[in-house]
Amino acid sequence: MYAWIWRHLPGPVAVKAVTALVLVAVVVALLLFVIFPAVEPMLPFDDPTLE
């Protein structure tokens, strides 16, 4: 999977590396700020109130 992505990134190695880092950053940001906040209320974590 990662080898396939690497092969399909355009440009010389330096450009590929920068593009790859940007892609990783985009995925991490998407997880931290969109996906995790959305799924978190469904998980049985840290509910301090009484039912």
Binding site: P44, F45, D46, D47, P48, T49, L50
Partner: peptide, 13 residues
């Protein structure tokens, strides 16, 4: 004061 117990869990208070 109420909080969850054990830490990280929602099992008890």
């Amino acid at each position: 004061l109420t909080t969850c117990h054990p830490r990280f869990s929602a099992e008890k208070r």
